[in-house]
């Protein structure tokens, strides 16, 4: 019994020592270990994405029938679009069409990060709009939140799959299909924050000064929702990257010629028994990326949104 209590108080004192009164939120964030680790890995991945053409890659869509199913590290030839034959070392081997897996994995970083960030932004944008409206204009609230409940009752992957099937897959449709199931979560969060914030004295003061509603929403309420939204956006980005990979892996995502980790793995299923690395290498990249985003999110939650951190 004493041991448990001591642990608890120790934890409490660590926590209180951790909060330095003069510190700004940004300084607290930068000091957090999770933020540092997750952030560092993401910076590295961003660098890989940005520098993809200069990392010894070839055009990821280029294939050569003579270099099919090569093991990692084997040298082979590639016929470029200009009709030139070049020598190329296949660091991660080649797939059943003779494409360089290393180049495809490196270029795949771009797609994953892009989908994650844009899907998070899209769902935040629409979710904030819905949440602000529902929280501030009471007559919209009932209908809008019931629709949100309905969307939440359908498992996210099913919505994404159905929408992609309906619209046919492209980068835009995949991003929107992934963003839509996340909107209710954002809307709920924003709505509940608005309902608390609108009772604050400064909002009351603004109302009594005759400030127009839209100005109160954007100038007084929205800024106070930013910290929890940054945290939520990070977690949405992580799950968006995962869902994009799942869609591509199932063959219902981005067109197969676009180098995404999911597509590489989908292709790798054909020769999995001989070449398991065709699935494992992009899988490791995918796991590290999602892990980094989630760890960053954990760190941001602990530092920016202590109330949410307490809940789970």
């Amino acid at each position: 019994m004493a041991a448990v209590d001591a642990d608890k108080y120790a934890a409490l004192s660590v926590e209180s020592a951790d909060v330095r009164p003069q510190e700004t939120a940004w300084q607290r964030v930068r000091r957090n270990l999770s933020v540092r680790i997750g952030g560092a890995v993401l910076v590295l991945l961003l660098a890989i994405a940005a520098l993809a053409p200069w990392l010894g890659t070839v055009d990821p869509t280029m294939f050569d029938a003579g270099s099919r199913d090569l093991a990692p590290g084997v040298r082979g030839e590639m016929l470029t679009l200009e009709g030139e034959v070049i020598q190329h070392k296949f660091h991660f081997g080649s797939d059943s069409l003779g494409r360089d897996i290393y180049s495809r994995v490196i270029y795949g970083t771009r797609v994953s990060l892009f989908v994650g960030v844009v899907a998070a932004l899209v769902s935040l944008l629409i979710g904030v709009f819905c949440g602000l409206t529902a929280g501030y204009l009471r007559w919209v609230d009932g209908i809008l939140m019931r629709v949100m409940d309905g969307i939440m009752a359908i498992p996210a992957i099913l919505i994404a799959i159905a929408l992609v099937a309906m619209w046919r897959a492209s980068l835009v449709t995949v991003i929107i299909a992934i963003a839509i199931p996340e909107i209710p979560r954002v809307a709920r969060l924003v709505r509940s924050l608005v309902l608390t914030i609108r009772e604050e004295p400064y909002v009351e003061a603004a109302i009594s000064l005759g400030t127009p509603t839209w100005k109160i929403m954007l100038g007084h309420i929205l800024p106070n929702t930013i910290a929890p939204l940054v945290v939520m956006g990070t977690f949405i980005a992580a799950s968006a990257i995962l869902i994009e990979a799942i869609l591509s892996f199932l063959g219902v995502g981005l067109p197969p010629d676009i180098p995404t980790w999911g597509n590489i793995m989908a292709e790798g299923r054909i020769a999995f028994v001989q070449f398991p690395h065709n699935i494992f290498i992009p899988g490791i990249f995918l796991t590290i990326t999602v892990l980094a985003v989630n760890i960053l999110g954990d760190g941001l939650r602990d530092t920016l949104d202590p109330k949410m951190a307490k809940r789970i």
């Binding site: 992580a238 990979a245 892996f249 793995m265 999995f272 398991p276 995918l286 796991t287 985003v293």
Partner: peptide
């Protein structure tokens, strides 16, 4: 955190 981040099919293929 790892469980939330690792894709289901990676676990699947690893086990297979």
């Amino acid at each position: 955190v790892f469980g939330f981040s690792v894709p289901v099919f990676i676990v699947g293929y690893l086990l297979v």
